[in-house]
Design a protein around this nucleic acid. Structure first.
Length: 140
RNA sequence: CGAGUCAGCCGAGAUAAUCGCUGCCUGCAACGAAAAUGCGCAGGGGGAGGAAAGUCCGGGCUCCACAGGGCAGGGUGCCAGCUAACGGCUGGGGGGCGCGAGCCUACGACAAGUGCAGCAGAGAGGAGACCGCCAACUUCGGUUGGUAAGGGUGAAAGGGUGCGGUAAGAGCGCACCGGGCCACUGGUAACAGUUGGUUGCAAGGUAAACUCCACCCGGAGCAAGACCAAAUAGGGUUCCUUAUGGCGUGGCCCACGUUGGAACCGGGUAGGUUGCUUGAGCCAUAGAGCGAUUUAUGGCCUAGACGAAUGAUUAUCCACGACAGAACCCGGCUUAUUGGCUGACUCACCAA
RNA sequence: GGAGAGAUGGCAGAGUGGUCGAAUGCACCGGUCUUGAAAACCGGCAGGGGUUUGUAGCCCCUCUAGGGUUCAAAUCCCUAUCUCUCCA
């Protein structure tokens, strides 16, 4: 019998946990989510949520998204290795249905797990935003 | 039955199953010398709102400031009451809207003073002669004077209607209507009055213009504040060691780099604990009051998180599920919103 | 959670209650200059609706939105919406 609980051991609790992951993480994304991840020295995966007020205005919608993410993580935790994941959210997510978001999350768990495997290639250096001059060069 | 007015209630739809979250209580095993505490597991019983929202007001609470009073600044503004307090509520008055039940109302003072009113217009406030009307004079073009009834301008032009009166007119006189002032009566008061007297009517608008009058307000906010307190940086006191010294690099000298050790003290970052839910509390009954509200007795404990808890899946039923999530706590206001229920009342039609 | 500031044309940004649809700059359009362009100079457009067969002209509305005060509101007063800043 597998354990599907979601106790405090499976969460990121302090700001220092978060800032460790923001430093050179593995990444995976869909139109409405971005996952950042890193291997940890625990025996289980851990999840942290970041739903900014800027992206989702209403407290009620923020709660809904967090619940969906936790529920999905809870059911999929045994498919994951010992990695720390931070889930971020993009604008417009509050207009999506529960079904759609759950589908995207299921894909993402698999993706991020593969990218964190020890043999996986290192991610490119973290760029804040695409370079404007590079873009215009491409057009020319 | 139709149209409408007011007041109140409910509202994560309900039930069941499985998995899951949270803090409270109980129990179990384990770490440990032991206890407390912390971690783990099992069971029990709790777990968002009428607006939790906006932060527009008012308090409690906390810290800072403070003898007392005033100025400045801000707020409120018909009267009376309720309240911890209020810009809220209740009752009453004035004004406006509606056939009506009812609804709306920043509603003190411009006769304390100062300002403002562009353009237009003759004149914009204790005024005024552009056209007109009337009289006199006239070179027949006009000039002088009188006149606020009519025209015209403007948002606004200094009581209204009628009769008398007059050269033409005019509160110039009179009647009625309206207004002002003083009594009287009713009312706690605002205010009201088919009440009496007096006054020809003179001082219009604007205070969400300055201002005056009356009353109120110290400042910041739980990210307030209190306690514990690593690592590392840094401070103070005492003692010890000593500057041809100690430590590091180095086999050693030379050389180069560095300036000490111990104890105690307070300040305090990360982090943790607390503030944190029993309160101007809710329910019932009885009394006071038109009512807001209040008094007495009895009963009840109803979220307290902190990367932040109520969800997911399945089945059945229906009104087919809106607005929306506590973060120190209350009293209001305002705004968002699906549908349903209850009570009181008004109008229209029909019947009796 | 609490405290505060703001919203004006395509963009930035002034604006004492009155001749304000609203200075100024950028942008845009036209012209002068040039072989052509840039710069400079001159002029213009500033949003929507109505009137008109159409244009010009004229009229109405519009300074985030909705009310109110005033003869008159971008400006004063309420209410809402949105944006931004600060506080551990």
């Amino acid at each position: 019998m597998e354990d599907f609980s979601f106790s405090r051991e499976l969460r990121l609790l302090t700001p220092s946990h978060y800032s460790r992951i923001f430093n050179e993480p593995a990444r995976a994304a869909t139109p409405f989510f971005t996952l950042l991840a890193k291997r940890n020295d625990q025996t289980n995966p851990r999840l942290g949520l970041t739903v900014a007020k800027k992206r989702v205005k209403k407290a009620c919608q923020r709660n809904r998204i967090k619940r969906l993410a936790r529920e999905s993580f809870r059911l999929n935790q045994h498919k994951l290795d010992n990695i720390d994941i931070v889930l971020m959210v993009k604008s417009g997510i509050d207009e999506q249905s529960n079904d759609e978001l759950t589908k995207q999350l299921n894909k993402l768990w698999r993706k991020i797990n593969e990218r964190c495997k020890p043999g996986a290639p290192k991610p490119p250096p973290f760029k804040k935003r695409p370079n404007k001059s590079a873009k215009s060069n491409k057009q020319a």
